[in-house]
């Protein structure tokens, strides 16, 4: 096993299991669609709430996609092979999470303008929303991977992942939606984006390292 062959195999597996990715995306669209139907379809409510709605739907959809990311590898024994491959386990985890991020977040970003229109989000603010998604979702994914790695050996780990990981998601949601609110009020928002980027970079340093330890403990 090499890093390249690992990446190729993961990519192929991801492509063959595109139904899972599609489920998460569909879930995202459904949640966003239900808000105008359930609360208030008027622009007066939707325009200020759009950022919050999109972000909550994103976090739930990503949690769905990331929660079982290592399950199959644990079950079929390839996780043991990662551990004994002599390669850096952190780097393997990072490759896997990044591929997954690309597969889920990029289509999600493509759909956001359409949903933005539905939520009466002005075009100027749409760019900011997409920037917060681009900068904030790596942290969501990396921390989610840590939760998935910790609970991989449990049969019913989904709820536990959410409990473990949710505290790390709260600041991301707060900064992302406040950034969008600031932009809508015409205030500078670059500080919020910087905070999101900082959180993603911090997760990038911490999560692969800790996930590797969690995986080693899980296969033990």
């Amino acid at each position: 096993m090499t890093y390249t062959s690992f990446m190729r195999a993961q990519y192929a597996v991801l492509w063959r299991s595109k139904q899972d990715v599609l489920n998460a995306l569909l879930f995202f669209v459904i949640v966003v669609t239900l808000f105008p139907l359930g609360i208030d379809p008027s622009p007066a409510f939707l325009t200020p709430a759009a950022g919050g709605i999109v972000w909550c739907a994103t976090v739930l959809a990503l949690l769905m996609a990331i929660e079982g990311v290592f399950k199959e590898d644990y079950r079929d024994g390839s996780m043991e092979q990662w551990v004994v491959s002599g390669l850096s386990l952190s780097l393997l985890v990072l490759i896997k999470v990044m591929l997954q991020w690309g597969a889920v977040v990029l289509p999600l970003l493509v759909m956001t303008p359409l949903l933005g229109q539905m939520l009466f989000l002005p075009n100027d603010d749409l760019g900011v929303l997409m920037l917060t998604l681009l900068l904030g979702t790596p942290s969501i994914f990396l921390m989610g991977a840590l939760g998935a790695a910790l609970t991989v050996s449990l049969k019913q780990g989904a709820m536990l992942v959410m409990l473990l990981i949710l505290p790390f998601y709260v600041p991301v949601i707060i900064f992302a939606t406040s950034g969008l609110q600031a932009a809508q009020a015409g205030l500078p928002y670059s500080g919020f984006l910087a905070m999101l980027l900082a959180m993603s970079l911090l997760s990038l340093v911490v999560s692969p390292f800790l996930s590797a330890i969690a995986i080693k403990a899980s296969v033990n």
Partner: peptide
Amino acid sequence: YIGHSTGLKERLSVAENIAFYSPH
């Protein structure tokens, strides 16, 4: 090391599994 769970990826073909574990 080939364990009791073989580590084969079910969603990959035979050739792809071999390319995964023995790329050289």
